[in-house]
Design a protein around this nucleic acid. Structure first.
Length: 553
RNA sequence: CGGGACGUAGCUCAGCGUGGACAGAGCACCGCGUUUGGGUCGCGGAGGUCGCCGGUUCGACUCCGGCCGUCCCGACCA
């Protein structure tokens, strides 16, 4: 097909809006692909929507290829479904009611609704099933940002697998992993399949697909030797070994007047900060527990949430004083009357800890001997940690999470009563998985990975048009001829027939970023030829008009 | 939700400190001419509730208060 720029709504901008920081944000706005309507709310203009549709089609083909059945669920959802799974409590969930006061939510994902339909599955003979849809998700994000990077409303492809058992789920999960790899490959995205945290999803295992970029919401942690990749929130970095002082036979109290920070404590006592511990009192449900990490580490809230399988909150100052008899900077595990969750890094060795008395700490505190704890990986990995598989150095870089896949298990099917009769006559809950990817984020990631100073460099597979024909003045007839040749060769053509100067057209062509540019100008027409240029490389060659249809390779 | 900043033409911004005249520039837009392979040049023109409400004042884009919106950092983030 041939689209004429003179007729298109294609508002390109010379300047980017002042508040645009991310490259994808700036270029998509400048190139006339998207426009902001409100915080985290974006319209896809005609060009942007073409790209979105290309990505959607790639996803559709790959999910169809693994047996997906496309359908469509509503966004507006009776709150009852979300009450049954307990996810009504998610703060990001938009809640509203209709005119007669019935409560609804705006779906932020569709586990509840899909499981609701899964209740119609009765027999193992009907399993497995794989259902998916492209639908609008609504999220009350406290802080949208970065153009398309984090928004409040967006289209997501989410699929849901229904299996008899864990083995079936594993197979469905693996098929999605492979489909996602193919999707991102086709979009020319560099992505890494990494451990992720499922957070409040209610699942037990989840994996993310992270595209490393200049700007992004997530952080990709990668080993310098290329053998370990993880979402920084879930990474299992190995912390450096601390310089431990000589061990003591028993804990020993020391006066530490006015010392409430790890830095202050380490300096005051002349010890390695890594030889101290810090205690974070948190409340899970109605239970106060003490999370303990090494002094130089940060607690990973995501990991702790996964450990508890529930959200938690920091204890208040009053709760801390009432339970421990000391202020937040002075509490510790020794003699505490609460459960202690300690990070693995504290399993071996003696550390300085709070004493539960203001102005004092204890040193020589040893897990197992001086306090009892449940050990878990609850520290936040950081750059400089050692790789868990080879010992190499880990580094971090910003990344966009373009896909996230979950083994949900039976969390939703149990809550909503989606069961089937198995071969053995037993009624069992369906074993589920869910698999999400956002075309808009994928587009943002593609732009982040494929652009230069002048504009976007679309991969062939998702470009808004295959070829951008720059028609220089007074050559209208010949331009039409070239466009028809290209159209006949099956190319989608953007014909820039606007009455503008060459420089402006070239600049717009660079900005919009179609993979090929064909210049129709007087210079070459006397030879019945045009100049064909590859956007990504800048290579240009002269081709006769008769051959132009086959020249884009 | 904490911290910071901003809100004046479609976009980028000046003006506001020290209140006072028709509220300005560049780009974009419309007309005419010029130019025509990398954002020409000239002339003319259109375009504004100065975010909203209230207060102070003879007089408010400017000062004060409240609200709304947007962005950045953090918290949060299926």
């Amino acid at each position: 097909m041939i689209a004429r720029a003179s007729k298109l709504f294609l508002p390109t901008l010379r300047d980017a809006p002042a508040d645009a920081e991310a490259a994808s944000h700036r270029l998509l706005v400048r190139g006339g692909f998207i426009r902001q309507v409100g915080a985290g709310l974006w319209t896809f203009l005609p060009l942007g929507w073409r790209v979105h549709q290309k990505v959607v089609q790639i996803i559709r083909e790959e999910i169809d290829a693994i047996g997906g059945q496309e359908m469509l669920c509503p966004v507006l959802t009776p709150a009852e479904l979300w009450e049954q799974t307990g996810r009504i409590a998610i703060p990001q969930l938009f809640k509203l009611s209709d005119g007669s006061g019935r409560p609804f939510v705006l779906a932020l994902t569709h586990e509840e609704t899909m499981t609701f339909h899964g209740r119609e599955l009765q027999s193992y003979k009907e399993l497995p099933q794989l259902w998916y849809h492209f639908s609008t998700k609504e999220r009350d994000e406290p802080r949208p940002r970065g153009g398309l990077l984090r928004v409040r409303e967006f289209i997501m492809k989410d699929s849901y697998s229904f299996d008899r058992d864990e083995a079936g789920l594993d197979a469905s999960f693996e098929r999605h992993r492979q489909a996602y790899e193919r999707i991102f490959e086709r979009c020319s995205l560099e992505v890494y399949y990494v451990d992720a945290e499922s957070g409040i999803m209610g699942g037990k295992e989840s994996k993310g697909f992270l595209a490393p970029t200049g700007s992004g919401e997530n952080e990709l942690m990668r080993c310098e030797n290329g053998d370990y990749f993880a979402d920084a929130e879930a990474a299992r970095g190995v912390p450096r070994s601390p310089e431990l002082p000589d061990p003591l036979d028993a804990p020993e109290e020391v006066e530490t007047p006015g010392v409430t920070t790890i830095e202050g404590l380490a300096e005051f006592l002349g010890v390695d900060p890594a030889a101290t511990s810090k205690a974070m009192p948190v409340v899970v449900g109605d239970r106060l527990v003490l999370a303990l990490v090494r002094g130089d580490d940060r607690l990973s809230e995501e990991k702790l949430e996964t450990f508890f399988e529930s959200a938690f909150r920091p204890a208040t100052e009053d709760e801390v004083r009432e339970t421990f008899g000391a202020g937040g900077g002075s509490i510790g595990p020794v003699g505490a009357k609460v459960d202690v969750i300690a990070d693995e890094a504290l399993r071996e060795g003696q550390f300085v800890a709070g004493s539960n008395q203001d102005g004092r700490h204890v040193r020589g505190v040893e897990a197992g001997r001086d306090y009892q704890a449940t050990f878990a990986d609850i520290r936040q990995a950081k750059a400089g940690d050692a790789c868990p598989s080879c010992g190499g150095k880990l580094g971090v870089q910003p990344a966009i999470e373009v896909g996230h896949i979950f083994k949900l298990g039976t969390f939703h099917s149990v809550a909503l009563g989606a069961t089937f009769l198995d071969e053995d006559g037993q009624e069992k809950p369906i074993v589920m998985g869910s698999y999400g990817t956002g075309p808009a984020r994928t587009i943002a990631a593609v732009v982040e990975q494929h652009h230069d100073e002048a504009g976007i460099l679309w991969p062939d597979s998702v470009a808004p048009y295959d070829v951008h024909v720059v028609l220089l003045p007074e050559l209208g007839e010949r331009g039409e001829e070239v466009a028809r040749e290209l159209d006949a060769a099956g190319k989608d053509v953007l014909l820039d027939d606007r009455d503008l100067r060459a420089g402006e057209k070239f600049a717009d062509a660079d900005l919009i970023g179609c993979p090929w540019r064909v210049t129709v100008g007087k210079k070459t027409l006397e030879d019945a030829a045009v100049d064909v240029r590859r956007r990504a490389t800048g290579e240009e060659r002269r081709v006769s008009i008769a051959d132009v249809g086959d020249s884009l390779t």
